[in-house]
Simulated assay, not measured.
Amino acid sequence: MIHATYLPRRTLLAAAAAPLLTGCSAVQVLDALVPRDNYRADIGLAYGALSRQRIDVYQPSRSAAAASPRPPLVVFFYGGNWTTGQRADYRFVGEALAGAGAVVAIPDYRLSPGVRYPTFLEDCAQAVRWAVNHADRYGADPDRLVLMGHSAGAYNAAMLALDPRWLQAVGLSPRRVSAWIGLAGPYDFLPIDEPMTRAAFEWPATPADSQPIAHVTPQSPPALLLAADRDDTVDPDRNSAGLAERLRAAGVEVSFKRYPRVNHVTLVGSLGTPLRWMAPVRRDVLRFLGLVAS
């Protein structure tokens, strides 16, 4: 056993921060500890007329941009059971990816109980259209559009990637999505037991085609599915493993990875600088994006 006094200071700091990830202040802790000198950000841009229809864009620093002149465009959707969340708390995700060369857009979207399914998907589709329309402004390659999300946000990413209705409704071809990434997403969760999820999807009137797993076809884009072994919120076997199996059966390129040391929240938390020791999530995401981890 290694005595704690011999651990690097960064590891001790991360170990101290890790328990905070069980609470709602976790992302604020991560944001306070990540670097600020390897990206540029445009904050609070409007992709629609409503107050929740705002988006933040993270660009590589000039040195990073020079190494990757046409980086991928990643649109990241945060989780929160479709009832909570705000883009301002996910700067650590923007830094994790923009610091390695990606252009990252993180939108807010309307939440339950103010709205119900599928309104949050409609907002997410509008945000994607805005990101594609502004890709040139930020130096991103609009043909390397990658949708990404955690938990409920992974559901949003999956639905936009797999079900053509949502992007078509905003004038985008579903083929614009070159790939998608899901972290601990719920992809097959009927019947619904959790009260807030019931409200968001108006259970028991929830349509069967609200489930991402119902939309897998041989034309589905490649996927990276990441899951935590210690996930007590979203069953990784039924959801991530089940969707990976369905995609493979359809002949779709998919990579599925599970991590033994993280839970539902620390899975995405490990993208942040202080918690990267917990799981190589950032490394695996960057490799999938064709970028090199720094």
Rank of each mutant, 00 (worst) to 15 (best):
G80D: 07
A169P: 13
E194C: 09
T119N: 10
P72G: 07
A125T: 06
A105W: 00
V128W: 00
R70C: 11
A17V: 14
S173V: 06
P69Q: 13
Q219S: 15
V252M: 10
S63R: 14
P69K: 08
M1P: 04
F77W: 11
G79T: 03
P71Q: 14
A158E: 02
A65N: 07
D231F: 07
A152F: 09
A96M: 04
A18E: 12
D235M: 09
G79D: 05
Y138E: 06
A140Y: 05
P69H: 10
A16I: 06
V57L: 12
V265F: 04
R165I: 13
A127W: 01
F92N: 01
G251C: 13
V34G: 01
G80I: 08
G182I: 05
R40W: 02
D229N: 10
R261T: 08
V74Q: 04
D229C: 01
M196G: 14
R248Q: 14
L13I: 12
L243N: 00
D31I: 10
S61L: 11
L286D: 02
T22P: 01
A205P: 02
H3C: 11
G79S: 09
R91F: 01
R238W: 04
R276D: 04
L275Q: 01
F189R: 08
S255Y: 11
A228F: 05
L50M: 15
A17G: 11
A18N: 03
R261G: 05
R129C: 11
R238E: 15
L275F: 05
V57T: 12
Q28F: 06
V252F: 00
V268R: 00
A205Q: 15
P35A: 07
S112I: 06
W130V: 00
W82V: 01
L289I: 07
D193A: 15
A18W: 01
P118R: 03
P195V: 14
S210H: 11
A214E: 14
T22G: 15
G99T: 00
V93Q: 02
Q126I: 01
V115R: 06
S210G: 14
N156W: 00
L291R: 04
S294Q: 12
I2D: 01
L13A: 13
D31G: 13
L30C: 03
F201T: 09
A100S: 14
R261N: 13
V254G: 05
L160A: 06
R116T: 10
A14G: 15
Y155Q: 11
L226V: 01
A244L: 05
P8D: 03
L145P: 01
